[in-house]
Design a protein around this nucleic acid. Structure first.
Ligand SMILES: [Mn+2]
Ligand SMILES: [Mn+2]
Ligand SMILES: [Mn+2]
Ligand SMILES: [Mn+2]
Lengths: 219, 219
DNA sequence: AGATTAATTTAAGTTAACTTAAACATTTTT
DNA sequence: AAAAATGTTTAAGTTAACTTAAATTAATCT
């Protein structure tokens, strides 16, 4: 009947790979707030049904079938996020959670209508690419995480990780939104925090925060 | 965790009572496409948790707690239907199914935003009242089902049952939409079909169809 | 009233998706 | 090369929500 659970696994795996991290059962378990044993169980099913391939300690890969499913889900998720933000007016930091619920309960026809209403958006409000109906992914500018931007360098925010409401709320209040220009004015060796200049204001960002912000790589 | 199933039972019970039919396990089973035994099971749970009271062969009643839950769900359902129809532009006969999925996956905050965008609608596209946030139900004009409208009488469609896509598609194509005026020109004893005049066209309606259309009772 | 029909419940079983606790395997550190 | 830490699987059990088949109960018909 309902595939909500399976879809959630695929989304987490897809987003993990998208961030080019190695995706292992532990990571999935943490993201879904379930036990490792549950992930082992589901990976067996997903493997048998040819959604993923998986080598213990080496990571999970999406097979063609799984990738297609995941892309369709991510498309639904990001179109909803964009719609909730632009048309409904929900705040930036609430749309991920809401979209996570809606993504499992919408027909393709509805999603396509939303896409038309939004005039075929390429990126969601966090800067993530929205897969097209045919599965193609809009090309993004080359990015690096903010912690790797050199001192004195200026760049613009391209995307931010959207999984923590607290982070997004902080970023929003600090004006660290998509396309915002910023300059790194200081790097502190001790804790890897950095100081950036945004809207003529200085902001101190911890390493954990700067690693969740991605700026254009100008080289 | 997820309450989708429980909510569905409550919606069916609520809508059954709204149509002033006696609601028994068999009716619920038919509407949800599950076995009677499953309904018996769930009724036990719902009874234990004080959502409903139930006397075999006498019907199911909603208790305060169950009524509140059901009204909240019906509110979500009908606000979604209205939004899908008016803002998204989905066809009349598809919105019920789509709303049935979305109703379980939206926060109160989202629903309230939709309500604002729609400017506090009182009735959904099928003419059903949309419960307010405080639980109050907009008052409807007194209705009778079309099969009970006397010959020669003129009236306007107030609401239609929305559970069959086929029925709604037929009504839509025939111009039998909300507020449409019609006149009964003939009643056929043999099969209880009737002939109505709509937009200067004559239409033959079977008893089954006319029983699913409700017109203002002018007396 | 007794027979027939319809509605309901019980019994037993299935499946998906989890859990905890313990065992096992691999990688990393010393 | 051990030891320790980390990651993974197994085993056993739980829960919700269903199923079919058989038994029971109530309502309706003759
Ligand atoms: Mn998201
Ligand atoms: Mn996003
Ligand atoms: Mn409906
Ligand atoms: Mn409706």
């Amino acid at each position: 009947m309902s595939n909500i659970s399976k879809e959630d696994y695929l989304r987490v795996i897809y987003k993990g790979l998208e961030e080019s991290r190695m995706v292992n059962p532990t990571l999935v378990a943490e993201h879904l707030n379930i036990s490792n044993a549950a992930v082992t169980d589901m990976l067996k099913k997903l493997t048998k049904e040819k959604y993923v391939s998986y080598t213990p300690y080496k990571g999970i890969q999406l097979l063609e079938k799984g990738k297609m499913e995941a892309i369709k889900l991510v498309r639904r998720h990001r179109i909803w996020e964009t719609f909730l933000f632009k048309v409904i007016g929900l705040p930036w930091y609430k749309i991920d959670q809401e979209a996570e619920n809606l993504e499992h309960s919408s027909s393709d026809e509805l999603i396509d209508r939303l896409e038309v209403i939004l005039n075929y958006p390429e990126f969601d409000p966090h800067g993530h690419p929205i897969p097209r109906k045919d599965g193609r992914i809009p090309k993004q500018k080359k990015c690096i995480s903010l912690d790797r931007l050199g001192i004195g360098k200026v760049s613009a925010i391209q995307k931010v990780n959207d999984h923590s409401e607290e982070l997004l709320m902080f970023l929003y209040k600090s004006g660290l939104v998509i396309n915002k220009k910023l300059k790194v004015t200081e790097k502190r060796e001790f804790d890897n925090s950095i100081v950036v200049l945004v809207d003529n204001k200085e902001l101190v960002l911890s390493e954990k925060i700067s690693k969740n912000i991605f700026v254009e790589d100008m080289r």
